[in-house]
């Protein structure tokens, strides 16, 4: 039975300090909530390059290929010559391809965002509304009781306003 320890901070630098110390003490199950993106927190929690970029790349490649293929395939289903142009015209179809590249790039990035971030998550999870206003909150999952004592100590020493044990889905 694991317990969740939640610490609430008023200041960004203390919050970052607590995160760093928890990480160094071997706590890996950390959730950091903040009203603004903190690049320092990303670094501590080990978020490097996001896998979203793979989705974007895949989307643009698929879009480019599909765009051109769609233009060619639809032109071949009905042979309707216009204006002395060939049926498969390269420059206009490249424009279609270009637009589809961007469309699919955007849609796949959106998909990637949802997959990577785990959103939408409309279930109840541990959350402190103030952390979306002006508080920095961290939740650390501890496997054993003594571990959670250690975590509480670290959080308090770092300068937290409040420490509590909370139930729920992290």
């Amino acid at each position: 039975m694991s317990t969740n320890v939640m610490g609430v901070f008023e200041f960004e630098d203390e919050f970052i300090g607590a995160l760093r110390r928890l990480k160094e003490s071997g706590f890996d199950e950390l959730t950091a909530m903040s009203p603004i993106p903190l690049h320092e927190a990303d670094r501590i929690l080990g978020f490097g390059k996001s896998p979203v970029r793979r989705y974007t790349l895949a989307g643009t490649i698929i879009g480019a290929a599909m765009g051109f293929a769609m233009a060619v395939a639809t032109a071949l289903t009905f042979i309707l010559p216009t204006a002395g142009r060939p049926i498969i015209t390269i420059p206009p179809y490249l424009i279609i391809s270009y637009e589809m590249t961007i469309l699919f790039g955007v849609l796949f990035t959106l998909l990637g965002f949802h997959v990577v971030s785990g959103l939408p998550a409309w279930r109840d999870r541990i959350y402190l509304p103030a952390s979306n206003v002006d508080r920095f909150t961290l939740v650390v999952e501890c496997a054993e009781a003594e571990k959670s004592m250690l975590a509480e100590n670290i959080i308090l020493e770092s300068g937290a306003e409040e420490v509590s044990r909370v139930e729920g889905d992290r």
């Binding site: 990303d42 929690l45 790039g105 990035t109 959103l119 999870r125 979306n132």
Partner: peptide, 20 residues
């Protein structure tokens, strides 16, 4: 989407937003 402002969410949003 049930946004909580976790570091993971910010990080992913930041990347996705830059790509957009």
């Amino acid at each position: 989407f049930g946004w909580r402002g976790t570091a993971k969410e910010w990080h992913t949003l930041g990347w996705a937003y830059t790509f957009f």
